[in-house]
Design a binder for these strands. Structure first.
Lengths: 344, 344
DNA sequence: AACGGTCTTGCATAGCTATGCAAGACAACA
DNA sequence: TGTTGTCTTGCATAGCTATGCAAGACCGTT
């Protein structure tokens, strides 16, 4: 009779190491927990045995015991926008420095969100960080129901457990308006982001308000609708051309649309920037610095926003009742470049 | 005397639900495991109780029992490159569709990698997917030692447990050379990526080989060194200008450098594309389609590459001994745009 | 009524580590 | 030597769910 070889490759456990080192399982655990009470001699024996067996500590049981996984669910969409991509990079780095892992969830639309959340929660994540711009009440309720801290970027979601870190969208819109008026431009265009996007709405509001506050007659901008993509910015200008409107200034809700608009103004309307049209975007993406665009933009200071988000998380982890909401608003920094620099 | 309220918020367990529903804990488990043997009546009772308590299934114990976490460690760097950002998006989506979670780890340099891997492994991830371009032997050994399947994109890492999915870098380089020669250009420039980058090296090799195979005299390109960033592409052209070289064609190891080079050619050398210089890039990033660049590029078909990576993972999960290596090479698709379209 | 079969349910357990507690080892001191 | 204190070690257990097994419920057939 042939002894069937066990195909199951059981992972090396602390007990295996303990046996080899001739110590108890506790000793192995302590050898890998900094600050534990263990003699140098034992520690060395354990580490040697662990090395020879290829043992790696296993955090899963600790999660069960402590109820904390040290994993944060990051829900994100629209990575094709360089702004979100670099923001994710910063966030991931910051979380790791705080000893937190990133359980990433990419979401295209609100529909898949519910399902996605259930999956995340089943892994017992400690919190959720999200940049979803959808402001629906249903989403807020779905998040609140999880009973874990949620931090949103640039969102208008409101509810228990939900905190937000927003760029000063309204203020930036106001600044954009003032800058355009200072330069003496009187036919501005507002190029909006997705209709339900909270950030875009706030920027629009600030912009309009800025255009109202004038000693002479208030200015009403031409409004164009986009969806945060380059193509939508380009298309918006085409529609403008069809309507026979000749703008002298433009504020776009994000840089990608601004780039699309700038290209369309050049190619389709033979208008030059900044000579004929001065332009401002939002997000300060790397492409804004590219020579072909040299775009004035608002920097959201993602570094600061991420730091603030982590503070909120830490606070929530320490509080007994962490369902309390907080809101932080971070000033956006105007970065002036060639697109608003008038020739002398 | 005041009864001290318990601050510890224990999560709702299946036992709590069972008690409320008047069934056993097993029944609760089965109610949430599709395909289990359970009557409709019991299931409804359980679901109702679970709903009222806010119970969410907990995967952590299942991980301990099965040894499989259904989490894949994704190790990535350079998200500021839109190519990696969109690739990550595709990968995350595909993994989720296969029921796998993404444990994201952002890594800047090889130094932090070791530490990062230990952290990942302690969460008992089932596999690793990485796009790190570093080809060092040390890295390969560190990965092999983990004894879990590893899938690399565009890498030259070799070792047990490590499989690779590569774009046909060599073939694409060759194609680029042929295209340049067909257009009658004789002073080509090769703009390389980071020195140790395996993909960049392969593209260079194919490009040189293509330039050699000619009926007349072989062509030797001018070689410029970049680091995959826009700025390095711009700077490379500046150095060219200093050396007094006037190119008539350029192949860059990625699109970002190509964009930088194109802007520098325009601004610094007053050379127009494609009239004076025809240009090709690699990755087919969204910016390649932007009107200011309209850049011919090689599409890596990330969709296909991701699908292939998932096949490799599935295969590894099913095999008893999954330490066997595989290599797949995916054709890159030439996307011709204005930057190589000569005026009639 | 007896029997065989299918469907449903509960019991009991495995999976692995961190940690409180008690006990042991050892040194220092009286 | 006895006592006190510090340092180290091992024992035992908690944490929560999925699942094999056995038993029970129920139905249909002979």
């Amino acid at each position: 009779m042939v002894t069937q070889e066990q195909a199951v490759i059981r992972a090396v456990t602390s007990i295996d190491v303990a046996r080899l080192a001739g110590v108890s399982q506790s000793a192995v655990s302590r050898a890998f927990s900094p600050g534990s009470s263990i003699s140098d001699q034992t520690k060395q024996k354990v580490l040697a045995a662990a090395e020879s067996l290829g043992y790696r500590p296993n955090r899963i049981p600790a999660i069960m015991l402590s109820g904390r996984s040290c994993m944060v669910g990051v829900v994100i969409g629209g990575l094709e926008n360089p702004f979100y991509a670099t923001a994710l990079e910063r966030l991931a780095t910051a979380l790791r420095e705080s000893g937190l892992q990133v359980l990433l969830m990419h979401v295209d639309d609100a529909l898949t969100l519910d399902n996605a959340l259930d999956q995340l929660v089943s892994y017992r994540i400690d919190a959720i960080v999200t940049s979803l711009a959808i402001g629906s009440k249903t989403v807020a309720q779905a998040l609140s129901r999880l009973r874990i801290p949620v931090v949103c970027f640039n969102s208008s979601l409101v509810g228990p457990w939900i905190s937000t870190v927003n760029s000063d969208n309204h203020g930036a819109g106001f600044t954009a308006a003032r800058l355009i008026m200072e330069k003496g431009r009187v036919r501005p265009v507002w190029l909006a982001g997705p209709e339900r996007n909270a950030a875009s709405l706030a920027r629009a509001e600030g912009f309009l308000q800025g255009l109202q506050q004038t000693r002479t007659s208030p200015i009403e901008p031409t409004r164009l609708q986009g969806d945060d993509t380059y193509d939508s910015g380009y298309a918006a200008i085409l529609s403008l051309k069809k309507r026979g409107i000749r703008p002298d200034s433009l504020f776009a809700s994000n840089d990608m649309m601004a780039c699309g608009a700038m290209d369309a103004l050049r190619e389709e309307m033979e208008l030059r920037c900044p000579d004929d049209v001065i332009m401002l975007g939002y997000d300060n993406i790397p492409q804004a610095t590219w020579r072909s665009y040299d775009l004035t933009s608002f920097d959201q200071c993602t570094g600061k926003m991420v730091a603030r988000a982590l503070e909120l998380l830490e606070k929530a982890f320490q509080a007994k009742d962490s369902s309390h909401s907080h809101t932080h608003i971070i000033d956006a920094k105007l970065i002036e470049r060639g697109s608003t620099r008038l020739p002398l």
